[in-house]
Amino acid sequence: MVTIAMTRPQVIDLLSTIPDPEIPVVNISEMGMLRDVIISEAGCEVILTPTYTGCPAMGQIEDDILTLLKREHIAPAKVTTVLDPAWTTDWMSDEAREKLRKYGIAPPVHSSCNHGCFTSNDIRCPHCNSIQTSMVSRFGSTACKSLYKCSSCLEPFEYFKCH
């Protein structure tokens, strides 16, 4: 039998300090990727879900979680990846959205990605808040973003696609 010295909320708080490797301004909890922590006699199990199926950051995040738990002497620990329910930008907290905007990334505007998100004409520029923006490229530097430009302040910016 194993006794873990921390409670579930404490472990969640601890893991919530891990940044998203690709957008370090938000953490994995705010992104909605950290789904749960299960403390049992078998040890500590962290439930994680990927944003996109090919998300290359998953390996890094798993390493970060295990390293952090080891440092806090939480053992045995393991990370389980689940796909169901499928990750959606709806799970992103308001706090995370605000952090993205301040970082220069326009947060997802639609409440759900299933309909109508391909003709997003209402993306606000994260720099000047103008609605006079247009899409430059549907795909961006990472799977979760597309490229926009603002015709008011003339700045290019990234938009976190609703998904």
């Binding site: 990927p50 199926t53 090919g54 998300c55 290359p56 796909l83 490229s137 549907r138 795909f139 799977a143």
Partner: peptide
């Protein structure tokens, strides 16, 4: 360049799906 990003992003999605 934008298509370079698009096509490789799509490839990444499909690698992920193939892996699963």
């Amino acid at each position: 360049l934008e298509e370079d990003l698009a096509l490789t992003n799509m490839a990444l999605d499909m690698t992920g799906r193939a892996q699963l």
